[in-house]
């Protein structure tokens, strides 16, 4: 049995594979880097599969918190793991967009699923999940409702600022000027999509484009991204676990090789 753990800034994910590469179980816990989240998610994924720790032949950890998690046999970056996981699920994928809490990444794959090139956001939080959280807070809306709110928009407003702090004051003054919340929400999604599209532009976009990571569940971001990069964006069934799946695949290879 092979375990992959993906410790992000806001969530911890785990996947267990058997030696025929079937997914036995997966788990997502809403606690990120630290000790609690990773432990909980590993415990959950083991119990779902009805396994105990000793039955794991090899484990790989990935994600933002991979350096601090000591229990895995090996650590590999989320770039490689998202690539591996995505390619496994969708061999036609050539471009992966992964928007996480802290980072946004664009990864290009070759025909064999190897990473050809990748780009990550700079220090600025615009274009990441963090930006959407700030926007949700201003709009007094739960983060998972932001997309729904945005779908009700009647017109498209522009949030022009790159800087999250600036964007915050821009949005506040737009609300004060009577702009509707749903229109602002739509603008926020578009702003994120624009930043990520800019990132993608740096290394080029080649279809099929696949989106992974938690933000992929947000339909408004996906729609806006499709508009910006002018390509269809496929969202995998459980986009959050793709990194952990890739890690588990690596774990399998370590033994198999």
């Amino acid at each position: 049995m092979f375990l992959g753990v993906d410790i992000g800034s806001t969530t911890s994910k785990a996947v267990i594979l058997d030696s025929k590469l079937n997914i036995l179980s997966a788990s997502v816990i809403n606690t990120g880097t630290g000790t609690l989240g990773p432990e909980k998610t590993v415990k959950a994924v083991l119990s779902k599969a009805g396994l105990n720790e000793k039955e794991i032949q090899y484990s790989v950890v990935t994600g933002y918190g991979r350096m601090t998690y000591q229990k895995a046999d090996k650590q590999i970056t989320e770039i490689s793991c998202h690539a591996r996981g995505t390619f496994f699920l969708k061999p036609n994928a050539r471009t992966i967009i992964d928007i996480g809490g802290q980072d946004a990444k664009v990864i290009r794959l070759d025909e064999d699923g190897r990473v050809k090139n990748f780009a990550m956001n700079d220090k600025c939080a615009a274009g990441t999940g963090r930006f959407l959280e700030v926007m949700a807070r201003i709009l007094d809306c739960r983060i998972n409702r932001l997309s729904v709110l945005s779908q009700k928009a009647t017109e498209e407003i522009n949030i022009s600022n790159t800087c999250t702090v600036f964007a915050e004051s821009e949005v506040i003054s737009q609300l004060a000027a009577g702009v509707k919340r749903e229109n602002v929400a739509k603008g926020a999604h578009k702003a994120v999509a624009k930043r990520v599209a800019g990132l993608a532009g740096r290394i080029g976009v080649e279809p099929d484009v696949v989106m992974t990571g938690g933000v992929a569940l947000n339909k408004s971001v996906v729609d806006a991204l499709e508009q910006e990069i002018k390509e269809k964006v496929t969202v995998l069934k459980k986009p959050q676990i793709v990194g952990a799946l890739g890690a588990a695949l690596y774990a399998f290879e370590m033994i198999d090789m």
Binding site: S80, V115, K123
Partner: peptide, 28 residues
């Protein structure tokens, strides 16, 4: 491998990821 740097960096986690990914990209 493009590393955006400042002389004093509060967080190098992302840069670590970039460097490690670069290695993985060239060795895997």
């Amino acid at each position: 491998l493009y590393l955006e740097i400042e002389q004093k960096m509060d967080s190098v986690e992302q840069i670590r990821t970039r460097i490690q990914s670069f290695k993985e990209m060239l060795t895997v």
